[in-house]
Design a protein around this nucleic acid. Sequence first.
DNA 1: TTGTAAGCGTTATCAA
DNA 2: TTGATAACGCTTACAA
Lengths: 321, 321
Amino acid sequence: MITLSDVAKKANVSKMTVSRVINHPEQVTDELKQLVFSAMKELNYRPNVAAKALANNRTQVIKFFILEDIDTTEPYYMTLLFGIAKGLDEKQYAMQLITNRNFDLDYADGYIITGARGSDYEWIDRLEKPVVLFGENRNGYDYVDTDNKLGTQMATQAALAQNYANIVFIGIDVKEPFEYSREAGYINTLQQAQFMPQIHRMGNHSHASEQFITAHWSQFPPNTAFICASDRLALGVVRAIQHCGGDLPADYGVVGFDGVFLDQVSNPKLSTVKQPVTRLGELVAQMLLQKIQQSGAPQGELLVTPELIMRHTMRGGAPQT
Amino acid sequence: MITLSDVAKKANVSKMTVSRVINHPEQVTDELKQLVFSAMKELNYRPNVAAKALANNRTQVIKFFILEDIDTTEPYYMTLLFGIAKGLDEKQYAMQLITNRNFDLDYADGYIITGARGSDYEWIDRLEKPVVLFGENRNGYDYVDTDNKLGTQMATQAALAQNYANIVFIGIDVKEPFEYSREAGYINTLQQAQFMPQIHRMGNHSHASEQFITAHWSQFPPNTAFICASDRLALGVVRAIQHCGGDLPADYGVVGFDGVFLDQVSNPKLSTVKQPVTRLGELVAQMLLQKIQQSGAPQGELLVTPELIMRHTMRGGAPQT
DNA sequence: TTGTAAGCGTTATCAA
DNA sequence: TTGATAACGCTTACAA
C-alpha cells in the first residue's frame, strides 16, 4: 500500500506538503505541487479513507433511509440509488441503506431521507448531522425533487394541444406535497385554458384506476385525455379503456408520471412525464456532500425539469411499432 | 464520543481488555467481561469503525457490481440490494454500488458481483480480495442463487397436475447458467412424465413473447400451459392469449419466474416462481463477510428454494378477485 | 511556504 | 489472563 509518506519521500518533501496538495492546494507553491502530483501519479497513490476519516473525525459513510414499505417499493428507488451511489463514489463516500424504522442513527456524516411522514420529523429534527430529503416537503428541509408541477403542466398542455375536449386528472389519494404539486400543475394549466378541472383520487395501484374507469365509463366520452399522477395509475386506465372498447389514442389519451420501468413493459407503451431519476440521485448526493463540507449550511430546494415522452397512448405520440 | 478508553476507565481495566472483550472474548475472564459489558452499556459505547478499519488494515466497505445495462435493470436488483444492505449493516459494513465497467477496484474488503459475462472473469480473477458472485456460474466461483432448476420443475409439475395437454417453455435466448438450469428443470420433469418438451427462446421482453405467441397462435391449441423463464415473458404471453381470444386460465395457463414487482401490476395477476430475493441478498452478504473473516476460504454454492405462487393465470390458482 | 510533532480510536505484539 | 507500547495513515496546530 502506498501512503502519504511514500509519496513524500519520492517527491522529496514532507508528508504535510503532500497532504496539503490534496486538501489545501492553494497553500503550496506550484513547483512543489507539480513534484507531488507526478510522484502521486507514478506511485498510483490512493488515500486511505479510514485514516482520513479517523483524523477528521468523519465516517465517510452516509445513510440513506427509504421510509416506505418494501412492498410498495417501486423500481423507482433502484434508479435513484444508482444515482446516489454515483454521486457518493466521486467523493469516496460509502452508503448504508436503511429500510426499517428501528435503525442505528449514529455513525454517519449525513443522511438522505425519502418517504418521510409527519411523525418522522420528530427524530429527523434530532439528527446531529446534515440531512437532505429526497422529495418535496414544505417544512423547510433542504431537498431535491422533480419539478412535479411543471411535469403535469407539460402533460396537460400536450393534451390541450392535441385538442382533447375533456382532460381528467387521476391522482393518488395521499396528502403529500408531490401530489399537491402535480394537481396544481394540472389545475393551473386547465384554468388558463378555461377548461374545467376534474380530479379523481385513489390508491396508487393499476387495479384501482382500472376498476374506477371501468365503473364510471359512461362519464368519459370519446375525446377524453387522462393525466395520471403515476405510471401505475396510467397503466390501469389504459387497461380499462381497452376493456371498455375505447379507441386509444384516437378517442382517448393517457399520460403517466415517473417514466421508470413500468412505462416500458406496458403495451401500448405509455406516454409519460419522465423523471430524471438517476440525475436526481446524483444531485441529492452532491447536495448532501456539499452541506457536510459547509458544516451544515442550508442548501435550499432543487427542482429538476422532467421530460414529457410522447408515445402510443396519446394523439401526437410516436406511432405504434 | 465514547471511546475504548472511556469504557476502560469506567470498568477499571486497560483498553486492551475492552478490545479483547469485543474481539476475543474467550481470552478474558468472565468477571472482567461482565464489568466491561456493563460499562459499555452504561456509556452506550459505539466502536469507531474508521479506527478499527485503520488498525486492521481493513476498509469496512464492500463493493457491489451490477454488470448490466442500467436500462435493462429490473426492480429485481432493488430488492436484492435491500437484502445485501441488511446483511452488511449487521456487521457494520458499508456498500459501494458500482454500475459501469471503468471503476475503482481498490479500497474494499471484498466484492459481490452480478451479471458477469465471459470477458469479465479476466479482471475478476485479478481481484485481490474475496469475491462472491450473485447468480449461478460454472467456473468455480462461490455464489448464491435461487434454485432455478427446482423452480421450473415446480412450475412444470403444477401444470402437469392441472392436466394441461401441452406444456411449452418460453425461454430467454442467452447462454447463461440460470437459463440452462431453468430449461433443465422443465425438460427433466416433462420427460419423466413422458411429455415432449418444446422450447422457444427470445429476448427477455414482454413485447417479444407477445409477438411470438400471436404470430404462432395456431400452434398452441387450447389446453396449453406456458412455463416462462421470466415474468416479463409471461406478461407478454398473457397479453397475446387475451388478444387472440384464448380463455385464461380455462384453456391456457401461464407461469412466470421471478416474482418481483411485475407479477403484481399485471392483470390478471401472474402465477409465478417467486425468488426470495431479499433473503438472497442477505445470504450473499453473509457469505462474503464470512469469506473475508476466513481469509478468503472457498464458500461453495448456495441454492435457495423458490416458492411457486399460484394466481389467476393458471388453473388451480387463486380465484380472480 | 514548508516542516515537526502530536493525536484521532483501535489492535497486534510482547512483556509481566 | 492482563497491560504497556507502538503502529495503522492521515490532519491539525504550531514552529521554523
